[in-house]
Design a protein around this nucleic acid. Structure first.
Length: 274
DNA sequence: ACTGCCACCTGCCGGC
DNA sequence: TGCCGGCAGGTGGCAG
């Protein structure tokens, strides 16, 4: 489901409802959701912990604990953490439950079961999560055209594939990759090594622009991340190309097309993206 | 090291 | 109505 902007919305939601709460009990419905440590150890170590705050790195949620440890969560495609009253009816696909000290519980739902939890100790440096290998955070000041050019190196694969590679830049997913390349007027299948410095600058600028706008919009509609419905809605009207094959391009009016790049659906305007 | 391809899962949708 | 293939916003691992 989520790319960086949606994960940021979830971060805000969890930070508001979890900070200061203590875990009174842990139920692991589906053990494979716990990537590290072993599920039994996970339960023992997490019980009694208090949340200090919730941060985000790329698409990872970092639930900081007051003892210096971190509960890491990646939602992958369909992960959905909800904080609900203890007596709320349990929904299908509930995978992990953390009871909290205020008669609420954090319920982790995940239809496709791709999401994962990791519980890291204060000074645990073993990177079982993959966090250490991530590329720069696209909205940080440290990221810009130079960083992008350096990360792309002379790679021959399509620029879209490179943007989806979390080692290049961290947090872009399939939808925003298409939106970014449309805004930068670059065809998604262009080999990264064939892009000019000016084109790379446009891409770097649009990465920041598109993601920042999406984060801002998500914060405004955070109430949409609704406990009742359990779904956050991406405003599809804001997407200019994704999912719009056959519709007229908002810039030139020519029909948008769908193709497949790196086994992922890709949408672009063959007339004004080069 | 890079690249392509598959696997991991469930559910939904359109076509026959 | 029902079955079947294709598709889904992510990533890790494998082979070449």
């Amino acid at each position: 489901m989520p790319e960086l902007p949606e994960v940021e919305g979830v971060r805000h939601y969890l930070d508001r409802l979890l900070t200061g709460r203590t875990v009174t009990a842990v139920t692991v419905v589906r053990p494979k959701i716990i990537a590290h440590p072993a599920p039994e150890v996970f339960v023992i170590r997490l019980t009694g912990q208090t949340f200090a705050g919730v941060e985000r790195r790329a698409k990872f949620l970092l639930l900081r604990l007051t003892d210096g440890g971190t509960l890491v969560l990646h939602l992958r495609m369909t992960g959905l953490p909800l904080v609900v009253p203890t007596d709320a009816p349990q929904k299908k696909h509930t995978q992990v439950i953390l009871n909290l000290d205020n008669s609420t519980e954090l319920r982790y739902l995940d239809q496709r079961q791709f999401g994962r939890f990791w519980l890291l100790e204060k000074n645990e440096h073993d990177d079982c999560t993959g966090l250490a290998k991530l590329g720069p955070e696209p909205l940080s000041r440290a990221f810009g055209p130079k960083k992008l050019a350096a990360a792309l190196g002379g790679r021959k694969c399509p620029i879209k594939t490179c943007l989806l590679d979390q080692h290049t830049v961290a947090g872009i997913g399939n939808i925003y990759a298409d939106e970014i390349l449309f805004a930068a007027r670059i065809k998604p299948d262009r080999p990264a090594c064939a892009l000019s410095p000016a084109e790379l600058s446009r891409i770097a600028r649009e990465i920041k622009q598109i993601l920042a706008a999406a984060v801002a919009k998500d914060c405004l509609s955070i109430s949409e991340y609704d406990v009742q419905h359990g779904v956050e809605q991406r405003d599809a009207e804001k997407l200019l190309v994704y999912g719009r094959a056959g519709e007229p391009c908002v810039r030139c009016g020519m029909p948008l097309v769908r193709t497949v790049i790196g086994q992922r659906s890709s949408y672009y305007c063959p007339h004004c993206q080069h």
